[in-house]
Design a protein around this nucleic acid. Structure first.
Lengths: 148, 148
DNA sequence: AACGAAATTGACGTTAACGTAAGCGGAAGC
DNA sequence: GCTTCCGCTTACGTTAACGTCAATTTCGTT
């Protein structure tokens, strides 16, 4: 059976008061962050999230929610899930905190360097292609001129 | 047995005259373009290259060499091998040529748009991360100040 | 009790571009 | 005649981040 996301056009039962609650179901988070249930379970398998269990069901705390936010942020800026997990694990040790922050800061800076390299590569590809386009256009114009 | 590339420090038997030849072995092309033999065979399986056979051995013509050049160019600018093959196939029809050029030109322009989008994404990631770095630095400085 | 909706686990599938291993064949050199 | 070198084929492995499917199970209604 496929996992269904139907039936919530505007009839969400989360009132203003309930929005301030501290626990979320898997569907809550999936909806809020636009990911699938499968994704959340996958992140759990990878050790990125560790929701409590109420019997069989997963219950996500605010901390889980915050971690998910960080995971998605990390993905956006190009970190792999493994890298993200390492940083989250570091962040959880909470003892020397300063050291952990420095480690993450270091990673961030390295990633910025990598991203800037990637940006340059993309820019080169763009100018290569642009040049090629110009050449092809030139050829086409020439032919048009000859044919006309 | 691993495929070996040893024994050619400077004793290449390709004289100036021989460089102008019209046929190449698989190793020739691999060396010249910095790809592995496996890669060239893989490209062949994918229909990107179609070298002649001299018995068992592959013999690459200048046309094959030119196609390889185009393949690597295409990869550099972000096309998949399938996309590259399609364009090469088009290019081989050689009949209405102009149409084919226009098709490729269209693809190129689309790819440029895609690349520019990718560039923007990377730029956003960079500024996100840069901001995060600033925040973390701020926190660290604050702590240092308090501790000292 | 029955039903449907939502959730669970487990496992295999997907995509791209090759890498890697295993085993075979022919030519060259000693 | 044996080893090296070079190449060949077949086929499974790899990486990332999930998707998809199957077979249940739990829950809240009716």
């Amino acid at each position: 059976m496929k996992e269904h996301f139907t039936h919530f056009p505007s009839d969400d039962d989360t009132s203003d008061i309930e929005r301030a609650r501290k626990l979320f179901t898997i569907s809550d988070l999936a909806r809020e962050f636009g990911v699938t249930l499968r994704t959340l379970r996958f992140y759990e398998d990878k050790g990125l999230l560790t929701p409590r269990r109420e019997g069989n069901a997963r219950l996500y705390s605010r901390r889980d929610r915050a971690r998910l936010k960080l995971v998605l942020m990390g993905k956006r800026v190009g970190f792999s899930l493994d890298e993200i997990r390492e940083m989250l694990d570091l962040y959880d040790l909470k003892d020397g905190q300063e050291t952990q922050l420095r480690v993450s800061l270091e990673r961030f800076r390295e990633q910025i360097v990598a991203l800037e390299r990637q940006k340059r590569d993309v820019e080169e590809a763009i100018s290569d292609l642009t040049r090629t386009c110009d050449v092809v256009e030139g050829i086409l114009k020439q032919r048009t001129a000859q044919a006309g």
